[in-house]
Design a protein around this nucleic acid. Structure first.
Lengths: 121, 121
DNA sequence: TTGACGCATGCCGATATAGGCATACGATGA
DNA sequence: TCATCGTATGCCTATATCGGCATGCGTCAA
């Protein structure tokens, strides 16, 4: 096997910096391919290809407008990511040493009696 | 070129589902490699390799414990991701059609001058 | 020392990405 | 119809991933 397809996931799609840049730019509203390419300093084919990936994972939508194709943001696909990552919030808020303590406490609590509940996906 | 290195970014590191699983499991506390491998149904070398990537991007830390090496979570690297993705929150909260309207309003406002007042949420 | 265990690596193969460049295609206007 | 603009694709190369398998290495117990 190789790496998971960039189009398999929103996770994989946004792993590419340029694609992230595109999304950010798109927050400002719909844009035609060429404009995106220009603003981000990439070639038109490059932009088109990245947009294809983003389209396939559903992070952008296209709208025909005469000769142009306007790409717009569809951020809904980012929500799951935000939630997944958010599941770690308490862990980065704790300082490191204290985090270890915290974990050890959890373990003990788990062995001794009713738990504090906290787990999985 | 090829794809960005998996170790170049936390973004790239968590693009791999198995690595995400490891992180989730690690929320429960430190674990030795073999246990992780067993619980996640992967081979030991596989686990080691994924842990290496996670270690290189700083999402996990290791601690020697006799024959074992205990891997623990260091979620601090996830924070930037959470923030980046969080920058799109308002966009996935809007329904799609309304989002377009919103964007159009922004554009007009930008061209005409002082706005119509009234946006988001 | 020897042996078992826990883990990290090395090597190989299959796959697919991202970039560069050329080009095909649809829409618009002359 | 023809030229042109705006995009999407195709092809080629270099690179690196992930998985499988074997093996190297350090630690601990006989």
């Amino acid at each position: 096997m190789a790496r998971a397809a960039t189009t398999s996931d929103a996770f994989n799609a946004i792993a590419e910096p340029q694609r992230r840049d595109i999304l950010v730019l798109l927050r400002g509203g719909e844009r035609p391919v060429t404009e995106l390419a220009r603003d981000l300093g990439m070639t038109q084919p490059q932009a088109s290809k990245h947009l294809r990936v983003l389209r396939e994972v559903g992070l952008v939508k296209v709208r025909e407008a005469g000769k142009q194709r306007l790409y717009g943001l569809d951020a809904r696909g980012l929500r799951p990511i935000h939630e997944w990552v958010g599941g770690f919030e308490r862990f980065w808020n704790e300082s490191f040493d204290r985090l270890d303590d915290y974990v050890r406490e959890l373990k003990q609590a788990g062995q001794e009696g009713p738990d504090h509940g906290d787990d999985e996906q």
